[in-house]
Nucleic acid binder design. Structure first.
Lengths: 232, 232
DNA sequence: TAGATTGTTAATCGATTAACAATC
DNA sequence: TAGATTGTTAATCGATTAACAATC
């Protein structure tokens, strides 16, 4: 592995990180979750071994992941939970507030709007949309459901960069196109459809049926692979 | 790569498959989804290239994935959608009905209970549970909410092998333990917690906040990685 | 100092891609 | 036959693990 590669360079503690492996980014979320669960006043240090045990990965993996975002640990001692959490938050972009718009007001949307976990991490719903006239005008969690023709305008006004799609599969690509045209940078898609977005837009899809199908495969072929699964 | 490895052997078409790579199993779900969307009477054949274009992967990848579950294509011709879908369904265990129990009746649970996608693929909710006395006895989608002390009994009676956890994070491990003790083989977990289950139980976790955090990372470090993301 | 634990290197493992002979 | 497309092999790429010198 070549040193001095791309924008990667060491700089007294925190490294300006050149695209982390996707699996590493996923684990950073887990590490953060674990650190947030620690009793702040009680825990002075955590070791890679402790994190590894808690999350079901190897200690070497943990050290590799954390070394990728900075020299945050002290040999012989471990990591300071607060420092670690702060750096991970910064890397994941959780040291700020993210306005989010949501398109498609069904059951899943209602659940998402009420989901406390989002608010805790700085995600903040600023507008919700539906193309069903009978839903437009309803109020859910203090938000009026807006018609789709106000999408672009609202996104520009609220500076929302993120959107959540929870419409039926056959409507999802059209909605994605509208979101992209309105300047959205990242889409979290819950519609069971493969979406295509331009290069400059980020997309994460969560397909609930696919997840359940992964589970049936594992159950059916159990004992051939019983390792701890990454969430998602 | 050695031939004749483990239980893998070729046998006229369908191969008795030795644990597929997890990424392959994920894509099998996508292929199936695409095939199900095709107009049956219209489409006689699909090529690996068509599947690849539709799903944003390489054609070589598609052929490799499909070759792993059998010799299903005809050189020079392509694959027969019906045959392909049938084999994928069989590999994923979707050629049968799966009774599912759900624990934790919150907003997300209500959304999941009404989610049509589950039913379409053969998943069937047979019982729902909550430890909140004010919820026990309520009826949702024709199911009475049962108290937790009826969990084991009900699971045995319904022969449910799968369970969905949608309780708060701090209750999730205890619920998982109860499910395992009651004989459940596979758990789909929506609680934002890392669960530990015995070797013989399969676990898939979907953490919505983690998914949104992956998205903020991508948006923030955009143009460093703008590839199509696998759902989940 | 002795014990613990990091950050990093080298070795291993696994998954993806490219190329092409086989075959419809 | 000529054109198309599979299944498979070898090459590439990337991620995980093991080991250990550096250091608190």
């Amino acid at each position: 592995m070549s040193q001095q590669k791309g924008s990667q360079r060491k700089e007294d503690g925190i490294r300006s990180l050149a695209r982390l492996p996707r699996a590493t980014v996923l684990r950073l979320s887990w590490y953060l979750r674990y650190l947030q669960g620690l009793d702040k006043s009680q825990t002075e240090r955590v070791s890679s071994q402790e994190l590894a045990n808690a999350l079901g990965v190897s200690a070497a993996q943990v050290r590799k992941d954390l070394a990728a975002i900075g020299s945050l640990g002290q040999p012989g001692i471990g990591y300071r939970p607060d420092d670690l959490a702060k750096v991970i938050r910064s890397v994941l972009g959780l040291d700020r507030t993210w306005p989010v718009v949501l398109v498609g007001v069904g059951n899943l949307a209602r659940a998402l709007l009420r989901y406390a976990g989002f608010r805790q991490q700085g995600f903040h719903f600023v507008a919700i949309f539906d193309n069903d006239p009978s839903k437009v005008g309803q109020t859910i969690e203090n938000l009026r459901v807006l018609p789709m023709d106000q999408l672009a305008e609202t996104i520009q006004k609220t500076h929302a960069q993120l959107a959540i799609i929870s419409v039926p599969a056959d409507a999802a690509q059209k909605v994605a196109d509208q979101l992209v045209a309105s300047g959205i940078c990242g889409i979290l898609n819950f519609a069971p459809a493969v979406l295509h977005v331009p290069h400059h837009v980020s997309l994460v899809s969560v397909d609930l049926t696919v997840q359940l199908e992964q589970l049936t495969y594992l159950v059916l072929h159990k004992n051939q692979d019983a390792s701890q699964k990454p969430p998602g």
